[in-house]
């Protein structure tokens, strides 16, 4: 099963999910002021939004605050969603991650995140018992793709995405030139993109 999924070079995960639940059509209804559609969209996406935000922020209460900001933003700006640029889930998670990172950089939370996140590897999330099969497959797929990267690329991407560090902060943490960090992030992301068959 995992083999099937990870060898599938067709639609991306995000697209598969959207096909099932039609996040795009929900978002379209939300943009017309449909509050029930908003409630449905919330029910279907909130655990992922909160999961991602909490991965970056760790603190649960702060993460819920940021999740609320994200959903208010979705409500307010649903008309601005452009399906040609990516999936609805991608739009929502991009917004979620950006808000989480904004919070980390602007708050006290940023000061002690080294201890909390440090160089934690992506694998640490895999033991959660409540995972559904679908999520486990996604984890597996990302994990496999991450294994195709060099250790340096993996480390830089984890620090940036899950740690919320900027490329200059990463350069400081790893004591390497900023240009090297930029290259690791770009080469690593391009490799990941190709491994996971993301089309733009």
């Amino acid at each position: 099963m995992l083999e099937l999924v990870s060898s599938d070079r067709g639609p991306t995960d995000a697209e598969n999910i959207d096909a099932v639940v039609s996040f795009e059509s929900l978002l379209e209804l939300v943009s017309q002021g449909d509050q029930q559609a908003f409630a449905d969209l919330y029910d279907r996406t909130a655990p992922r939004v909160l999961g991602l935000i909490k991965r970056v922020l760790v603190d649960h209460a702060q993460s819920e605050e940021v999740a609320q900001e994200v959903f208010l933003e979705i409500w307010r700006t649903a008309t601005k969603f452009d399906g040609h640029r990516g999936s609805a889930m991608s739009w929502i998670l991009t917004m979620s991650h950006r808000r989480a990172v904004d919070r980390v950089r602007s708050s006290q939370a940023g000061h002690d995140r080294d201890e909390r996140i440090g160089l934690r590897d992506i694998e640490t999330d895999y033991d959660n018992v409540s995972e559904t099969v679908e999520i486990r497959i996604e984890h597996e797929r990302v994990k496999r793709a991450m294994q195709q990267l060099t250790a340096f690329q993996r480390e830089a991407i984890s620090l940036a995405y899950y740690g919320g560090y900027s490329h200059t902060e990463i350069a400081g943490i790893l004591a390497i030139p900023v240009g090297t960090v930029k290259t690791r992030l770009r080469d690593g992301m391009i490799r990941l993109r190709d491994e996971m068959g993301v089309t733009s």
Binding site: R48, R55, G86, L93, E138
Partner: peptide
């Protein structure tokens, strides 16, 4: 986004 989807839902 795929890295985001890999985070454990909460």
């Amino acid at each position: 986004t795929l890295l985001g989807l890999a985070a454990t839902p909460v």
